[in-house]
Design a protein around this nucleic acid. Structure first.
Lengths: 196, 196
DNA sequence: TTGCAAAAGTACCAAACAGTATCTTTATGA
DNA sequence: TCATAAAGATACTGTTTGGTACTTTTGCAA
């Protein structure tokens, strides 16, 4: 039961990489088995359909990864405004798992799958929910600790920041340059300061 | 020479609608000719390839439409901050051409095509450039007229606002509700006020 | 009216697609 | 060690894909 689990993870890992680069629909099962060196029999032993694998990627690759890169950094810092800024800075400028030319995996999945696939919509919603809740909680904590004005609406601010993040990731794809990230970060800092 | 131009436009119009809903790659040429009632011979008489049609959609449908909905409203208003806010409000809440569940066509195209298709990248860049330049110019004018602080970086602000717009369009797809738009608009107003 | 190119219609192709049927190998628990 | 189920390999299927070859109809200038 050890090797089987390994091949399953290989499929998810490699398939994720292909999908991150080319998109879900443009990545065929044949592509995946070609780059993983896993045969079709093995693939369809582990996953009933391509979509089941897609859902598994979100649940087993994206969710844990996001938990590490998004949620933990936020919970560590005491000043939530610094925490949010540093998180964004690290995500955009330092993270080597995410490439500027390929955007944000969660955002890509959302844009591609959401309007016509209810299963994907559901898990992507859970994924986003997770992130939203933690950032909202961070802001609320900041209000109590005096770092943020009391009249600030935490949910609204969270949506605003996350939107900017998804959007600038898309602009990064278009320009294929991290320059646009710097513009976003500068203005994010201004915006965050206005919440003090 | 009149009827031919009409069928060409029918193809572009209907194909755009399909692509806006399903995405470019998920929309097949057979889909397009089925819904347009145009035969394959006619389709490939007007367009050498599917991609040539895709580029034509951006140039002949998206560009003129965006010129009307984005650029003109900005140039009319005298206070640029009001102009930008009203523009965003109209785009998100009133525009009946854009549907919350399908996001922003330009953003969708960018996310889907940009990393691996240089031709699409080029025209999408031009499209975005057009919008960026006008908004930047609006802000610069606002600085001269005293509506906006002199130390504000117009390009940065433009990128920040556009990112938020693209991002919130994506969140709208995910939640399938205009509620998230209201959060964005509220915080956009706060942000814009911080530029005074 | 007729000649001829523009425009549209029809039938087909090879490649790629997701998925299946069937067989063989590998691992593991009794 | 050996029976059995888990895991993987191979070859195939029916369908859809973008595109082509060829034919037919339409519109317009002379």
């Amino acid at each position: 039961m050890k090797k089987a689990e390994a091949t399953r993870m290989t499929i998810l890992q490699k398939a994720f990489e292909l999908i991150y680069v080319k998109g879900y629909q443009a990545t065929s099962v044949d592509d995946i088995i070609a780059t993983t060196q896993v045969t079709k029999g093995a693939f369809y032993y582990h996953f009933k359909t391509k979509d089941e694998m897609g859902i598994a990627i979100i649940n087993e690759i994206l969710k844990p990864t996001l938990t590490n890169s998004f949620i933990q950094p936020l919970q560590n810092e005491q000043n939530p405004l610094d925490g949010i800024y540093n998180l964004m800075y690290d995500l955009l400028m330092k993270n080597e798992f995410l490439k500027v030319e390929y955007g944000c995996p969660a955002s890509n999945f959302t844009q591609e799958m959401t309007p016509w696939n209810a299963d994907f919509n559901k898990v992507l919603n859970e994924l986003t929910q997770q992130w939203t809740e933690v950032m909202t909680a961070t802001i609320e904590k900041g209000k109590k600790n005096g770092f943020i004005r009391k009249d600030v609406n935490a949910k609204q601010v969270t949506m605003f920041i996350m939107s900017g993040y998804w959007g600038i990731r898309n602009f990064g794809k278009l320009e294929n340059s991290k320059k646009v990230y710097l513009s976003y970060l500068k203005q994010l800092k201004n915006y965050l300061n206005s919440l003090k």
